[in-house]
Design a protein around this nucleic acid. Structure first.
Lengths: 261, 261
DNA sequence: GCTACCTTTCCGCATAACGGAAGGGAGGAT
DNA sequence: ATCCTCCCTTCCGTTATGCGGAAAGGTAGC
């Protein structure tokens, strides 16, 4: 484990992440073991988090994420705010199409899924609320990448592209062309295991920048023209509800999310 | 400001809370000022939180709650888990009654609202998702209190009862009787400003304990019998969906949320 | 009784956190 | 252009806070 300089805060956050990743609650020793934080130290940190309400403890002594954290997170503009606005639109889209609907945002160089509705047939895939993926591996990620700040795009495009198991751009040249094409037509598509087609469209925020993306999963046998129109109309509806200007799309500003090399 | 022993973690949490309480984003100086954490120290802590993704920073330099925190909170069982299960039930109840519907849980000696649907007429009240209230001031709080661990009940009952502006039990004696009555009949009511009646019923979790409560706001002119039945049916539906046993109600176990006296 | 596992308290050490001071920068007013 | 204000960031010597091994309590099983 690359030993980042030790720091209470970082360790606390690592512990929170450890608990998040454990489907179930964890007891103290388990937290210590999985997070790599020495038992006594974990004890001190966990106690402090518990005292504040960031963690809860059930009768068997297992710790879980506490309500306080949820209260704090409930004002996160990109997740909960977006979620509240987008949910009814997503539901309408899901109910009329009966196809999987996903909502995601970009966090640095990854896609984070914020909400989803699954049709029974496509329920096999592994996405989950809060899950993270490579930007270039899915249609929804490609849309987010295509409208991301240029410096981040450059970084991803020239960086190592993990080859995904589905059909997606794999060389730098292909990826550049794909992104340009997405910006031109305003949507992205990828194949999923030769059986399904994922179509994604951007959602704009008040500043006109792309703040999220919406996708629809279709069987390949289905013609996607009408579905695409429906998806785009939905994405525009969400954008309008978020207060997006009616005019033309803007790229996001250069990302400030840069630190060391 | 009562100077708790200084500690990075506590200060970090105080900062998060400060940002949460500010409707909008805050810049560094503002964070320092409002949280009482010295500027340089705030800078260090905020940077660390930002680096981890717990905070985000927009182009103007203002900090907001970040996506990472939401991802962590997304697994909080009492909020998000409950929320996902209860939402469709709440919507049904709201759509058929067109009355305000609230979902809340207890956190220590307070009520925390997890979700709500408001009818236009009653939209004046100040509850908001994440808001906290005294347990004995609302119907929903009274239900949560009535089924809370006995030691906590005792603490609240014998403690100072802030007199709420609405009609609610104000003496220890009254409150005890009210709680007993709630347990006997299985629901609570309170008047809101002489115009509305709030009716609340408990929701049970897998262990049979009361984990949340649901309430309905009715105009006083309306007879509440049928609405109450509907509310109780909904609460039972949520309980069942959560995996509650069919049998009899249990009190929560003695709270472990005690520290110093 | 013993073993195995977890949680909590203790305490001397040193390191990570502290925060005043000072150095940039951006924007507004004169 | 010059001053002024407000904000962000870096520096650095000091010290209190966090550290974590060791050992003491707890609980459960055998």
């Amino acid at each position: 484990m690359g030993n980042e300089r030790r720091s209470v805060l970082r360790r606390a956050m690592r512990i929170l992440e450890t608990i998040k990743d454990a489907a179930d609650g964890l007891n103290l020793s388990e937290i210590s073991r999985r997070s790599g934080v020495p038992l006594t130290t974990a004890h001190r940190i966990v106690s402090e988090l518990h005292e504040w309400g960031a963690l809860e403890r059930d009768e068997s002594g297992e710790y879980r994420i506490g309500l306080w954290l949820w209260e704090v997170a409930a004002v996160a503009p990109r997740s909960v705010g977006l979620h509240r606005v987008a949910l009814p639109f997503m539901r309408d889209l899901f109910e009329t199409t009966q196809r999987g609907v996903h909502l995601a945002v970009r966090e640095k160089d990854q896609v984070v899924f914020v909400e989803r509705f699954l049709s029974p047939e496509t329920a096999t895939d592994r996405t989950w609320v809060g899950a993270r993926y490579e930007l270039h591996a899915t249609a929804i990620g490609l849309v987010l990448l295509a409208y991301a700040p240029p410096d981040l795009q450059e970084e991803v495009v020239t960086g190592p592209l993990a080859v995904p198991s589905w059909h997606a751009p794999v060389t730098e040249r292909e990826l550049r062309q794909t992104l340009a094409e997405i910006r031109r037509v305003g949507y992205a598509t990828t194949l999923i295991r030769q059986e399904y087609l994922s179509v994604a469209a951007p959602i704009h925020g008040p500043a006109g920048t792309v703040v999220a993306a919406l996708s629809l999963i279709l069987p390949c046998t289905e013609s996607y023209g009408p579905r695409l129109a429906h998806l785009q109309a939905t994405a525009r509806g969400v954008s309008r509800a978020l207060g997006a200007p009616q005019g033309r799309t803007r790229l996001a500003l250069p990302s400030d999310m840069r630190k060391g090399g």
